[in-house]
């Protein structure tokens, strides 16, 4: 839970050659009342490692359901600035009654609609400053060109935001948006993509590959990433033994992710099978224990993937968009005021 430990873990992930790390989050704990549920805010954790790393993508989970969209947009734009274009956003939904009780609000009935509205307005806000809005024109005394900063005037089903953002456009233009399949249904208001990277799963490899193909069929520009839980043979114990022990403490919900329990060679075979489908752009490895599984991934899995050219270590100075093959989007408001002036 300390800053030093967090920095060490993420640096290890970067050195292992992972493309991005995600920071899971939830405002309410899985097991109320237990110190085992300790968890710090995801954006704050990602920001803490923004300058202790130089290449790896940083992807905090931020729910769409209750937080203030304006703050979410500001925080993620700030993370992208601080991390020099390496920020992503895992946009999630928060069902249940615990979160609305924490926020003092009625439960959101339509999670899909709320998620769509929030991702839409956050994307609008990221574009509310054009890239060249700061002009520093000494002759006229203008620091910014007000024609290049736009209100968003977003009106959603449960909230509205006028904008513009308080933060200039982030380095990637739009930080990369990730979401689990089905959590944020696009397209956006003008037919644009709301989710850049869709996280998919399946009961087996074939199902996961099919899910990935469905993502790409619906939007050829989107990326499909398969979630894989891993419990590796490590520290002299089998993955199966480790999983049994974990489950005894509280079952590890499989969710929709694939799961590999066993040796690194088996994981490599699974990953190769996934990667053979061109629709699969990558995998999100969900380690049972970072302390235990990450060293094995770094030592025995990632080098083999690189040797087979199935992945490349992220490059310092490149953006997360670069690493995922996503282009930097044009600003949706660019030229709007001038066009009508």
């Amino acid at each position: 839970m300390s800053g030093a430990r967090l920095a060490r873990t993420v640096r290890h992930a970067e050195n292992a050659g992972l493309t991005f790390v995600t920071f899971a989050d939830a405002v309410v704990p899985a097991v109320p009342g237990s110190p085992a549920s300790a968890r710090l805010d995801a954006v704050t954790r990602a920001a803490f490692v923004a300058r202790t790393t130089t290449a790896v993508g940083l992807v905090p989970e931020v729910p769409t359901t209750y937080p203030e969209p304006f703050h979410v947009a500001t925080q993620l734009a700030s993370l992208d600035l601080t991390a020099s274009g390496r920020a992503g956003w895992l946009a999630s939904v928060t069902p249940g009654d615990a979160a609305p009780a924490a926020y003092g609000r009625a439960p959101v009935a339509d999670l899909d609609r709320e998620a769509r509205d929030v991702v839409q307005v956050v994307r609008d806000l990221w574009d509310s400053w054009e890239d060249d809005a700061v002009v520093r024109d000494v002759a006229t005394g203008r620091y910014v060109d007000r024609d290049r900063i736009h209100r968003v005037d977003f009106v959603g089903a449960s909230f509205s935001v006028v904008g513009p953002l308080i933060t200039p456009r982030p380095p990637q233009g739009q930080p990369v948006v990730l979401a689990r399949s089905g959590d944020v249904a696009g397209p956006g208001r003008d037919g644009e993509r709301l989710v850049d990277v869709v996280l998919v799963g399946g009961t087996d490899v074939a199902a996961a590959r099919a899910a990935a193909r469905a993502v790409v069929a619906a939007d050829p520009g989107a990326r499909a990433v398969v979630e894989v839980q891993v419990v590796l043979d490590a520290a002299g114990r089998t993955g199966a033994d480790r999983l049994a022990e974990l489950d005894a403490a509280g079952p590890w919900a499989p969710g929709t992710a694939l799961r590999h329990v066993g040796d690194p060679a088996g994981l490599l075979a699974l990953l190769a099978e996934l990667a053979d489908d061109p629709a699969v752009a990558g995998v999100r490895l969900l380690a049972a224990s970072l302390d235990t599984d990450l060293p094995v991934l770094a030592r025995e899995v990632l080098p083999a993937l690189r040797a087979d050219r199935r992945t490349a270590a992220p490059r310092s100075g490149a953006t997360l968009r670069d690493h995922l093959g996503l282009t930097r989007p044009a600003d949706r408001f660019a030229g709007a005021a001038r066009a009508t002036a």
Binding site: A7, A47, A133, R146, T167
Partner: peptide, 24 residues
């Protein structure tokens, strides 16, 4: 009714920025 354009403006979120500074 128009954006004030003469002063320094545009800044990061405070806690996010301070978290990055905490590490350095």
């Amino acid at each position: 009714g128009r954006l004030h354009d003469l002063d320094v403006v545009g800044r990061p979120d405070a806690i996010t920025q301070l978290a990055a500074l905490a590490a350095v």
